[in-house]
Simulated assay, not measured.
Amino acid sequence: MDASAAITMPEWEVAQWFNAEQPLRVADLRGQVVLVHAFQMLCPGCVINAIPQARKVHELYGRHGVAVIGLHTVFEHHDAMQPHALEAFIHEYRLRFPVGVDAPADDVSGIPRTMRRLGLEGTPTTLMLDRQGWLRMRHFGHVEDLQLGVLLGRLLAEPEPEPSAAAAA
Rank of each mutant, 00 (worst) to 15 (best):
D2Y: 11
S4P: 02
A5L: 14
M9D: 12
M9H: 09
P10F: 11
E11S: 06
E13M: 13
Q16A: 12
N19Y: 03
V26S: 06
V26W: 00
V26G: 07
V26H: 07
D28T: 01
D28K: 01
D28G: 01
L29A: 08
G31Y: 04
V33R: 00
V34R: 03
F39Q: 06
Q40R: 15
P44Y: 06
V47L: 10
I48Y: 04
N49Y: 06
Q53L: 03
R55W: 02
K56F: 07
H58F: 10
R63K: 15
V66S: 02
V66L: 01
A67R: 11
V68P: 02
G70S: 08
T73E: 14
H77S: 13
H78C: 06
H78K: 14
H78M: 12
D79H: 12
D79R: 15
A80R: 15
Q82W: 02
F89N: 10
E92T: 11
R94F: 04
L95M: 15
L95S: 09
L95T: 09
F97M: 08
F97I: 04
V99R: 13
P104Q: 10
D106R: 15
V108L: 14
G110Q: 10
G110K: 06
G110M: 07
R113N: 12
M115C: 14
L118A: 12
L120N: 10
G122T: 05
T123V: 08
P124L: 06
T126N: 06
L127W: 01
R131L: 08
L135A: 13
M137H: 13
G141L: 06
L146Y: 03
L146D: 11
Q147S: 08
L148Y: 00
L151A: 00
L152N: 04
G153F: 01
R154W: 02
R154I: 05
L155N: 08
A157N: 12
A157M: 09
E158A: 14
P161A: 08
E162N: 07
S164D: 10
A166Y: 05
A167H: 04
A168V: 03
A169V: 04
